[in-house]
Structures are given as C-alpha cells and as structure tokens.
Design a binder for these strands. Structure first.
Length: 879
RNA sequence: GGGCGGAUAGCUCAGGGGGAGAGCAUCGGCCUUACAAGCCGGGGGUCAGAGGUUCAAAUCCUCUUCCGCCCA
C-alpha cells in the first residue's frame, strides 16, 4: 500500500481519537500484575477555552501517560474541570447583563440555575479541545468540582476540620474586592507597583502645643484612625508617647503609641494607625488594644463612621478629605510616591483591606507534615529548585481565608439558630431544626467556599473519597503532578496539606513544574496584548502532532518557552519527514521480508551501524523520559530519525535494495528501524504514528497505542561498525565537498582516488566503494596506497588519508590554494593548542591517562594532515 | 530589600571541567522517482565582563553589569 504524497493531519486525527476512545484504551484495567501509574489533571476552568499553557501542560501529561501505558503500566489519568467560582460567576454576570439583568435582581437560586445552564452549554468545550490535542485521559473518570461526589468530599473535609478546631470564624482583616463583592485569600491578590502620592497630614496635639505630622498614601482612611504610632527608639517623638492627638475633620481623640514595627525612615517617622483598613495596623491594634473603626464598606463606599463623608465612593472621599484638610490647614505637603497596591486577580480592581467576619483554616498544623513530606523526599519537585520556594511559603504560611461572598460554589455547610445563636456545622443537605433549642428558625451561612478549597481535595475526591473505593486503594497516591509554577501555592501546597491530613498519605510522589509559554519576545501571552497563539488554530493549520512536538521540543526544564508560529511550522516539516520516510519504506517492502531474522553477524556494515545507533537512541530516550527531560527525549529521536536514518541509511538502503542477496534483510532492517522509531515517537506525536502503523505489513498489536515501548537491546550495539561508518561518512562528505566547491553536478562522471597508507582503510573502502559511489554520486572511487599527485588534482584531507579528484583543466589553482590554506590555518591553531597541553609537564602527570592518550592521538593525526596539506600547497604553487 | 533564573552563532536555545553544538535564518548548488514541507555543500561564536580554583574553565567559586520572574 502506498501512502499519499504528504501527510494531512486533518484527515486522520479525529478518526484515531475516536478509535482509541471507543476501544477503551485510555481506561485503567485494574490488572493486579501491572505496576500502576496515575495522574490527575490540573482541572481547567469549566467555562474556559484551551490556551497554549493548557496545551503544553496536557501534552506533557499525555506523553507520560502514553509512555507508561506502552511500558506496561496500568495507567489512570483523571480528567475534569474546576467550577472556578469568581471567574465563572463574573462570566455569567456579564452574560445576564446583556439581558439587562443582575444577579441580585435574579435572586440566588435563579442565578445559580443560570450558571449551571452555562456550564452545561460551555463546559464541554475545553474537554473537546483536550481531545483534539490527543490527550489520552481516562474519560470515564471525568469529574467536576461541583459534582455530587466532590461536594460530599468538601463537606466531609469542612466538618472534620471544624471538629478538629482547624476551621474557625471570626472578624479579621481580609482582602476585599469591592467589585466582586467578596473576600479574597492573600494569594488571590496581585501586588503591583503604582505611581501614587504621599500626603503629609498634620494632627494637632490635644494640648494645643503643636502638631504631629504623619505621611500616608491613603488619606481617606484617616477617618478611621485610632492612634498614631512611632518607634520607641525614635528620639524625636519619645516625649510625645502617651499623649493624645485630635483627629482633624472628625475630632476624635487618639493616642500616640510606641511600636517597634514603625520604620523611623518612612515619612516623618510617625504613622497613622487605621486598624480596620490596613494589615499592619490591624496587628498593631491587637497589640495595643486599639478600637477598630470601619470607615469603608464592602461596597467601596464610606460608612456611617465616616461622618460627613458617608456614602461617598472611596476615591471621591479621598478627594473630599484632602480638600477639607487643605482648606482647614491640616495638609502639610504632598509628594510623588511609588506604592505597591493589591489588585483582584480576577477583575483587577484595587483591593480594599477591611475587617470582616470570615471563615479561616488554621494552616500551621497542616503545613508542618506537608513540609516534612518534602524535606524527607517523599515528594520531589522537578526541577528541584522549586523546593525552596515551597518551603519559604509553607514556613511563613498564614491562615487561609476560605469564605467567599459569592453565589457560585460550595455553600458553607453551616447553619445558625436565630433563637439560641447556636452554630451548626453539618454534612446534611438541609438542617431544619436547631439541635440545641429545637427551634426551626435556622438559616444557612450565605457564603461559599474558596474554589481552591475543593481543588485541594482533587487527588482523592476524584477517586471517590470519602468512600474507600478500589480506585483509591489502587491509584492513590498518584505518581506525578504536572503543573506550572504559578499555582504551587494555590494548589500544589494545599493538595499536599489536605492529602496528608485526610488520606494519611501524600497525594503525589513527584511534582513536575513545567515552563510558562510566552510569545516570541518573551512576554506573557494575554488577550489584551493580542499576542496569544491559539492552540486550536495551530492544530487546524499544522496538525496536533506538530503543535505537541513543538511544545515538547522547546520545553527545557527551568526555562520559559518562547513560542512562535514559525517554530510550529518548522516541526510540521518533521512530521512530514516521518511520513515520507515511512512512505519510502512501505514502497519497498515485500511480504517475504517478514520471515527474515535479524542476525547482526550476517548483516552488512551499514545495517549493523543503524541498528546500533537505534539502540543508543532507545536508551537515551528512555533515560530522558524518566528524568522528565522531555525536550531532550524528543530531540534524540528527531536527530536519529532525520540525521541518521533518513540522511544516511535510507540512501544506503537504495543500493542494497537493488541486490537480490541483500534485498530482504535490508527491507527487514528498514521496517525494524521505522517501527521502533514510530513506537518511540508515539507518546509525542500519537496521530501520525498511529496512521502510519495502520499501513505496516506486520505488527505486534492492532494499534500502536497498545504496543510495547522499545527496549534497549545491548547486543545490537556495535562500536566497530560505528567507527567504520563514521569514517565512510567523512569520506563521503569530503567528496561532496569538493564537488560542491567546484560546482560539479551529479551528472559529471568523476573518478575519485582515495589515498591512504593503511590497509584497513583501503580494505574498508574496497568493501564499501559501491555505496560511497552512490552516496557521493561519483562514477568510480578507487583506493590507492601510493600516489603521486597530479597537477590537475584537487584534494580533501581526512583524518585517515585523503580524497583526490582529477579535474584536469577545470581546476582553479588559486581557489585550491586558498581552500587548502584555510584548512592549514585551522589545523595549525588546533595543533598549537594541543602542543601547549602536551608540553605542560603537569598535564602529562595529572591529567587522566585516556585524556593524555587522546591528545597525543589527535596531535599525530593533525600533524599528518598538516604534512599532506603543506605538500599539496607547495605542489600547487610550483605551477 | 530578600529569593530564584538567565546572558553561548543573526534569532530561539541545548550543553555543564578535557578537540565550541542544534533548529531556524543566511549564502552557493541541486526538480538525484520517499520527501522542494526536500537534498547536498558552505559561512558565521575572545560561550556578558573581571578575578579565582585547577594540569585544564563556556562549564566550578567570587564579584560586577544587564535582563526576566517571584516574595515583602
């Protein structure tokens, strides 16, 4: 059967994906005899679309899954999506806004209904896109964080943590997004430097004896000041500690306190303390028992406490406050100042720190074993430099604010009794009566849980926990987690904490942190920059395999990927190359070749060589895959396939295929090498390999996905063949070089001499001259032991001997002298280097013997070559 | 301010103590029936700078400069 002239991914990709899925190849077998390999997908947002980061992330997982599956493992790869509370709610809010609706107008129940509708409509988009990419997920395990089972796990965890005293509710300062109308965890706030101003405010002393000047970037919060603090060591203010100030505009009496946390270098050294709206001030207030005055509300508008400023939006209030301070003489000066402001990671609104009643998880006791698990090496980060980042964060972890004032998410399983005030924490769906006073006036907490709360349970909730399922006993802990560094805190660390706490076991043995995909200039891809590369468009244009191979080939550990469309196009050429090489092999295969046994001893030199090189490739690829160096694994096959198999062996094979006595074994070797390469490549480029597999005359499984990954066969290594072929290649390149330099086309009939004093090389040539003549496209090559150089001859010096071509009057003497002189100079500089080494006594004494021997060998070789070159140059110049 | 990473060919990057590599780009020649998405050949680098360790440094150590990212 003959393949089409070029590979067209669009014709085959969907077809093969369907076959794989229908045959159930992605599903685990629970075969007791097989080693286990499991991964849980980092669940993408249910309403999201596949971006290039997902493409990389899932390609890596797929490479691992397919490789392990082929290597005899029972593989479970759990896919699924995340409900992404705030993000999804925002999307749906925008959607209903088009109908002139707000979620408040719709009401909680109706709104949630709309979100579910949205999820049903769009939730599968990203799943289908993963399939386009070729992801071999175990789809029967597909989960969604709001599924019934996972919701049950969430409740279970919440209730248990509460019972253990690891969840509490209280009034604390938190990050508040006035636009989303919810609290955020510290992590969900993005800090960015912003150009702002520093205002110097004058607070008069109560006794009328002057002022204390404080500097602030947020003058509107002065309405909520409950103290002014100075450093206890600050001589300027020592005398004032304990005295009182009168807060301008408001007239409240506030004390001057001493606190070590105050930086005397900042501003005037005296700072205003607004415990309800600043994290540091909140802590300070706790230390000094200061009251909290909340002047900015959850809506971003000023509260009752703000007196005359009540009802003003926070930035309006700032303007007004500054105006009033100025007119009343309390504003000393203002200067430009760079400050760092928190922004909501979902909507980018400037965060308002404020005191509010929220739910928290006590993290220290959970973090401790999670740190230990990594310290003791039960969990390994790859590359390992991420370990430190993990430790840093875990050792300084703060309690985790888990309540969100939105509607889309897991509702907090807590009810309150209106009559007796009891807090009821329950796994029940509905609580109707207060267990303490039996009142029916119970109501559920309005808040939902942070989305990451449910994600933290993902490795075991997806496997059916809290049930003791077979999946859990078989596949937990998972083998590896594949993700990017930006969610190490959000997700990875929290999974480790929850996994250890609830399963008594780590959730995964390895964490492979891959690169971030950037654009060709190294900038983060974003819609607003307009520099996104859409993976689906790339699949459409170049095929899934080309995209996958590009991502893998560029994904070196510890470095970001700079991706451009041109790279994908480039690797598409490789896919096509594989196609065409296969086409060649299949065109030349006859059924009889199937019966041939590969007996290395009986094979021609080149055959032994390619099989040997193939084995080296198999070994390397396996090693690199085990080390998570996917780029190098991919490039190993790439170089072998293109640089050795296609460039050399396929050409050589053309000679052997013509001869009756070598025809069949050559066919066999061609097929063997091709088949092995396809297997090696399948995890990277599943579609094209599966398609070609379908055309192979003889194969061990119906589909390549089910075949065994190639195993290194040491007995096929043949160093002698490698050395010989290396020499033959050098010889071939020498001839081609001369031909190219003199513009001789394939059609010129040329006779070439190979001159060498050593019999072994002459013998080798006499055995292989037919192949070399074909490769170098010359009529005749003859080895000679003795040779007197003819005037019209051009030469090319090899490591052993030299190539000579008689060009008669075609020769360009000047050019030839130039060429040889260049060669001469190269050799001389190399010789100089080696001479320097060899004349160094210490080198001879201290360097390892092999190194010294190698240098000596090289010295001799270069010396010989130089001698020949010098003689030739001299000859040429005589004319 | 603290931490991490990077600086190697025009571009994108591998390499990580012993003769500077790949892909793309470039130049020259080829429609040689697997492939012009290709083949053949060539040019191109004081491996950021300065010190040090070593017989030997692109590679290890120190410092400097510049560029990213993370945290405060």
């Amino acid at each position: 059967m003959i393949l089409d002239k070029s590979y067209e991914p669009k014709k085959v990709e969907d077809k093969w994906y369907k076959v794989w899925e229908e045959k159930g190849y992605f599903e685990p077998s629970f075969d007791k005899n097989k080693p286990k390999f499991s991964i849980v997908i980092p669940p993408p947002n249910v309403t999201g679309v596949l971006h290039i980061g997902h493409a990389l992330n899932n390609t890596i997982q797929d490479v691992l899954a397919r490789y392990k599956r082929m290597d005899g493992y029972d593989v479970l790869w759990i896919p699924g999506t995340d409900h992404a509370g705030i993000a999804t709610q925002n999307v749906v809010e925008k959607e209903i806004a088009k109908e002139g609706l707000t979620r408040q107008a719709l009401g909680r129940e109706k709104f949630i209904e709309r979100v579910w509708q949205w999820k049903e409509r769009c939730g599968n988009i990203i799943i289908d896109q993963l399939k386009k990419l070729g992801a071999s997920c175990s789809w029967s395990y597909q989960r969604f964080t709001m599924d019934e089972g996972l919701s049950r796990a969430v409740k279970e965890v919440f209730v248990n943590l509460w019972k253990e005293g690891l969840i509490y509710r209280g009034d604390y300062i938190i990050n508040w997004c006035p636009r989303c109308g919810t609290a955020l965890a510290d992590l969900e706030v993005e800090m960015r430097e912003t150009q702002g101003k520093l205002w110097y405010l004058k607070y008069p002393l109560e006794d009328g004896r002057g002022f204390v000047v404080v500097a602030t970037t947020r003058p509107e919060t002065m309405l909520g000041d409950t103290a002014v603090a100075v450093n206890p060591e600050d001589e300027r203010y020592k005398a004032l500690i304990g005295k009182f100030l009168v807060l301008p505009l408001i007239g409240r009496k506030i004390p001057i306190i001493a606190d070590k946390s105050v930086d005397p270098e900042f501003g005037t050294g005296a700072v205003k303390v607004t415990p309800a709206h600043d994290f540091a001030d909140f802590e300070m207030a706790k230390r000094h028992n200061l009251p909290l005055v909340k002047v900015i509300g959850e809506d971003g508008f000023m509260t009752e406490e703000a007196g005359p400023y009540k009802g003003l939006e926070r930035y309006e209030a700032r303007k007004k406050v500054l105006e009033d301070l100025k007119t009343q003489g309390f504003l000393e000066k203002e200067e430009d100042y760079k400050l760092i402001l928190g922004h909501c990671y979902r909507c980018d609104t400037v965060i308002e720190p404020l005191v509010s009643k929220q739910w928290f998880v006590v993290t220290k006791p959970l973090a401790q074993p999670a740190i230990a698990a990594v310290e003791y090496g039960f969990i390994k980060f790859i590359p390992e430099n991420w370990t430190n980042l993990y430790f840093d964060w875990m050792r300084n972890i703060r309690d985790w604010c888990i309540s969100r004032q939105i509607w889309w998410g897991h509702r907090i399983p807590v009810w309150y009794c209106k009559d007796c005030g009891e807090t009821i924490v329950s796994k029940e769906e509905v609580v109707e009566r207060c267990p303490v006073c039996n009142s029916e006036k119970v109501y559920q907490d309005e808040d939902v849980l942070d989305t990451w709360f449910s994600s933290a349970l993902w490795p075991f909730s997806t496997m059916g926990w809290p049930e003791k399922t077979e999946t859990l006993t078989t596949f937990y802990p998972t083998s590896v987690l594949v993700t990017s560094f930006d969610i190490i805190f959000f997700w990875v660390a929290r999974m480790i904490m929850m996994g250890i706490h609830f399963m008594g076991q780590i959730p995964f043995q390895k964490v492979y942190i891959h690169a971030l995909v950037r654009d060709e200039k190294g900038q983060k891809m974003s819609k607003s920059r307009g520099n996104v590369i859409d993976p689906l468009l790339m699949i459409e244009k170049y095929g899934s395999d080309a995209l996958r191979f590009t991502l893998i080939a560029l994904a070196a550990q510890g470095r970001d990927i700079k991706l451009s469309e041109a790279r994908i196009e480039g690797f598409k050429h490789f896919i096509n190359k594989i196609w065409n090489a296969s086409r060649f092999v299949l065109m030349n295969i006859e059924p009889e070749s199937a019966e041939v046994e590969i007996a290395p001893a009986k094979l021609p030199l080149w055959h032994r060589w390619i099989l040997s090189e193939l084995q080296r490739t198999v070994k390397k690829v396996r090693e690199k895959l085990e080390e998570f160096e996917f780029d190098q694994a991919a490039m190993e096959v790439y170089h072998f396939f293109w640089g050795k198999f296609c460039d050399w062996f396929l050409e050589v094979a053309k000679v052997y295929l013509k001869k009756e006595e070598t025809k069949l074994q050559t066919q066999k070797v061609l097929l063997e090498v091709l088949t092995t390469c396809l297997k090696l490549l399948h995890p990277f480029i599943p579609f094209v390999t599966e398609e070609i597999w379908a055309y192979l005359p003889k194969k061990d499984t119906e589909h390549i996905i089910k075949t065994n990954y190639p195993v290194f066969k040491e007995h096929l290594l043949d160093e002698l063949a490698e050395e010989k072929v290396q020499f033959l290649q050098e010889l071939t390149i020498g001839i081609r070089n001369i031909k190219a330099e003199y513009g001789l086309t394939a059609k010129t009939d040329l006779k070439v001499f190979y001159h060498c004093s050593e019999d072994q090389y002459l013998n080798l040539l006499s055995q292989e001259n037919e192949v070399i003549e074909f490769l170098a496209k010359v009529k005749k090559i003859e080895g000679v032991k003795q040779h007197t150089k003819n005037k019209g001859e051009v030469s090319y010096i090899l490591s052993k001997g030299e190539v000579l071509i008689n060009l008669e009057n075609l020769i360009d003497l000047e050019k030839e002298v130039q060429r040889l002189t260049k060669e001469k100079e190269k050799l001389e500089s190399k010789l100089k280097q080696i001479e320097k080494k060899l004349s160094n006594q210490e080198f001879l004494e201290k360097a390892p013997k092999e190194v010294v021997e190698k240098e000596k060998g090289a010295y001799q070789e270069f010396k010989d070559r130089l001698k020949v070159i010098l003689r030739y140059i001299e000859d040429l110049q005589k004319n």
